[in-house]
């Protein structure tokens, strides 16, 4: 590269001491949570892991849906597809095992197999617009609050208020989507069939993502 004129470096400092103080604080906090319930300690550790991973990899679900439109890049989109594919394998075993054991309700289904109706369509589009404007979705907003963004503190506050507003209006939206079906793939294709359908969809999405970036940017490097 040709010569460049970087801004003069200020004498850099290490923030490791603050990290250590935070770690000590977390140990005390974890200890306090343990007196309430060990499950809360697990929740804290899982959250810390998610926040740490999101920050270190700059993983941004928002960018996975936004960048294809803005620059044509699908590198994060493909990473999201990969994440779903890997999680699917783990989830499949947990659910299938429960099924074989004769579980009446398959784990995860009550919370995550949601009705497909008007409320889902409207909510999804609203969420899509909101995350692009605010520069981050739920996990991204939390992660950026931790990084010190004042803007994301505002967006978190209004995210929370918007949630309350949404809950308030939920009965109305539910009345519009009364017969909305909950579709769990294994109910329609059998367990291994569902896995095949899922991976066919993921594979198709992956190839479309590659094709899109080649078309828009001319390269997938």
């Amino acid at each position: 590269m040709s010569e460049k004129t970087a801004t003069k470096r200020k004498p850099k400092s290490s923030q490791i001491p603050f990290a250590l103080i935070l770690l000590v604080g977390l140990i005390f906090f974890g200890n306090y949570l343990f007196t309430k319930s060990p499950n809360l300690v697990i929740a804290l550790i899982l959250g810390l892991a998610f926040g740490y991973i999101l920050q270190r990899s700059r993983f941004c679900f928002t960018a996975g849906f936004r960048d294809p439109w803005l620059t044509g890049s699908t590198s994060i989109t493909r990473a999201v597809i990969l994440a779903i594919a890997l999680a699917t394998i783990g989830f499949f075993f947990i659910k299938y095992k429960a099924f074989l054991a004769g579980a009446e309700v398959i784990p995860g289904n009550a919370h995550f197999v949601n009705p497909i109706g008007i409320s889902l369509l409207v909510g999804g589009v609203m969420f899509g617009i909101g995350m692009v404007i605010a520069g981050g979705c739920a996990s991204g907003t939390l992660m950026r609050v931790g990084e010190g963004f004042q803007m994301q503190i505002i967006s978190l506050i209004f995210f929370v208020l918007g949630s309350l507003w949404g809950v308030h209006d939920l009965p109305f939206w539910n009345s519009l989507s009364k017969d909305a079906p909950r579709i769990f793939l294994p109910d329609y294709f059998g367990w291994y069939g569902a896995l095949a359908v899922q991976f066919a969809l993921l594979g198709a999405a992956y190839f479309v993502a590659i094709w899109w970036q080649k078309k828009k940017m001319g390269s997938i490097e």
Binding site: C60, T62, A63, R66, D67, L70, T71, V132, G135, G136, R144, F149, M151, Q152
Partner: peptide, 8 residues
């Protein structure tokens, strides 16, 4: 500036 403004 927050994402994606710098990129744009």
């Amino acid at each position: 500036e927050a994402c994606p403004i710098p990129l744009m």
